[in-house]
Amino acid sequence: MSGATNREAVFPTRQSLGIMKSKLKGAQTGHDLLKRKSEALTKRFREITRRIDEAKRKMGRVMQIAAFSLAEVTYAVGGDIGYQVQESAKSARFRVRTKQENVSGVFLPAFESYTTEGNNDFGLTGLGKGGQQVQRCRETYARAVETLVELASLQTAFVILDEVIKVVNRRVNAIEHVIIPRTENTIKYINSELDELDREEFFRLKKVQNKKQRDTAIQDAEMRAKREDAEKRDKDKENEETGGGGDILGDDEDADVIF
């Protein structure tokens, strides 16, 4: 914020001062708004982070239960169904779709799970033995996957919010630390330039005034000198009138003119 260099290249006129002032005002409003947005997003972000933490732990438990239900299947079927399951997978029954949620102007996609009806690739798995366990396991896993989908939504939101918050914060910082000081500097500069002009003007006026005063003073002095001169002459005349008179009329006339 070193004064003179960090400012915009403008002519220090009253007009550009006006422009700068409105610019500063705009920047401040923008800063406030962005700051508020950033705060809202950060709040959301923290909330999401906390939920991610929770959800991850929950996932640990849910997946364990699911894995355990698979162990039950192995127990009941009395063999390994892995290969058969892998080979009979054809069309996904469990899918996700994305929807959007608006948080302070940011669109956060969220996953939503849904199951397509009708196709069941594993309906007959464990037909002879363990079918009920297989069905149960499927449901347990489907629930587990729902948890996973929820977590994936949170995580996506996390990644996107992280990005957006970074951008917003960068803007807030840019406004706060670059644009506003710069505009302020410019205003300061323009003000100081204008003040300088003002002072010059004032000084000049003062000079003019001084001169004028001097001039009038001189004139006054001259006047007074003249008058005193005249008075003196009058007195002389009176003195002369008592003595001799000739000029009295002329002098009287003069005096009338002045007074």
């Binding site: 698979l70 399951v85 469990f94 594993f122 297989v134 396991c137 896993y141």
Partner: peptide, 11 residues
């Protein structure tokens, strides 16, 4: 296997 049982498998 478990996740496929949940029905996510798609070929």
């Amino acid at each position: 296997t478990g996740l496929l049982l949940a029905g996510i498998g798609h070929v």
